[in-house]
Design a protein around this nucleic acid. Structure first.
Lengths: 219, 219
DNA sequence: TAGATTGTTAATCGATTAACAATC
DNA sequence: TAGATTGTTAATCGATTAACAATC
């Protein structure tokens, strides 16, 4: 794996998708695939697939294609999915609980060590197998347990304060579900899941389709 | 609002963000903003802001700037947020419940009319104020209640079947939370929230930061 | 070896940024 | 009117696609 040249974010965003398709191929027992075959499966051009993979080094073999198992392992390693991450969730509301459970049960390699809350009625509870702690103890907990990732599931008004505290405590990454854009120091990785923005894009496309449909009908 | 020329998806994806910032400005009682001021707030270049808005018609006034209330209303209308959408959730697991509640309580204009399940132990229950129905009755329900949007919160293995059924039933859009890429007819809007892909990108960026940090320390 | 398919360079396309004339 | 700031055209930048030589 080459570590030098800057990889564009567009490429990175495609990697998890490559990995998903490779996993499916693995399950089906396919052991090699050409960029052309992969293209018709995944919907990127063969050219793009080869360009993307080239960024990290040549994983293919001329005249043969790509080895499915090998490429899956490589992409997993590039994404850092061969490591384990310790996470905490901040905010024990609906979304916090769902994300905690989702990650806890379905994401191998991502361990949820606790949920943090300010609501005293929730502190001390267990949500499935995950303990709810007092938000006041967050910094100590992160330091003591070497937490890698903080998952923000608070309201938008509290999210920046939580991000500041997580940054101070020394997490390496923040996964933000609150509908705001957070400011974090540049050495901390930040990934947003703006659910609400996604819904609003959907609304736009629904109306766009309707317009197109109506135009069609008026002809 | 101009309805002709094709607007690129990059522009559409920025609209909800513009809207969020305009809402905050509104709350603060700001009534006008120039593209330059807006730029330093939102982090897009002033040029880009003017280009983006130009796509939909000139909302600004030379020598003055943009009217905050007016622009908020315009962008809301462009996104179709002046309408009401009827939605159903498919899958009453953790994520389905969370998304149902989130949308039901916090998203004005998006009404959740029910959750659909195959698990007989959940059918007939109420989750907060939302009724859980039998998945077998989905098509009739969509037709009878003019459901606009189906929210897929099933496992990845069931997601395509659900998408097919929703498409057949006549929804206008699908909001997909299952970690697969769905095939839907082109007249149906599809928006994916690939939570898992987002987590994997985060893992990549965490490791990238770590590499950079170590290189720094070795110097 | 011949055929297939990658790795890589070159061409194209689209999106972002810069510049400035129009105009409030 | 003069100053400010948009709307819009032109220049730049980056990402995608096409082409083909290298090589398995």
């Amino acid at each position: 794996m080459k570590e030098n040249a800057k990889i564009s974010n567009a490429v990175i965003k495609r990697l998890p998708r490559y990995r998903r398709y490779l996993r499916e191929l693995q399950k089906k027992g396919v052991d090699k695939i050409s960029s052309n075959e992969f293209s018709s499966l995944i919907g990127y051009t063969a050219s793009q697939i080869r360009q993307d993979l080239k960024n990290f080094g040549g994983f293919g073999q001329q005249g043969y294609g790509y080895n499915v198992n090998g490429l899956y392992t490589e992409i997993s390693a590039i994404l850092g999915l061969d490591k384990e991450y310790k996470m905490i969730v901040i905010g024990a509301g609906n979304l916090g609980q769902a994300i905690a459970n989702y990650t806890y049960y379905y994401k191998a390699g991502f361990v949820v060590s606790g949920i943090f809350e300010i609501n005293p009625r929730l502190i001390g509870m267990r949500i499935n197998d995950i303990q709810v702690f007092d938000y006041e103890n967050l910094v100590d907990f992160v330091e003591l347990n070497n937490i890698d990732i903080g998952i923000i599931c608070t309201t938008k008004d509290n999210a920046q304060e939580v991000a500041d505290r997580l940054s101070f405590a020394g997490v390496k990454g923040i996964w933000n579900f609150a509908p705001v854009d957070l400011e974090v120091p540049s050495h901390i990785a930040l990934e947003n899941v703006h659910i609400s923005d996604s819904l609003h894009s959907l609304a736009y496309h629904i109306n766009k389709s309707q317009h197109a449909k109506e135009e069609q009908e008026n002809k």
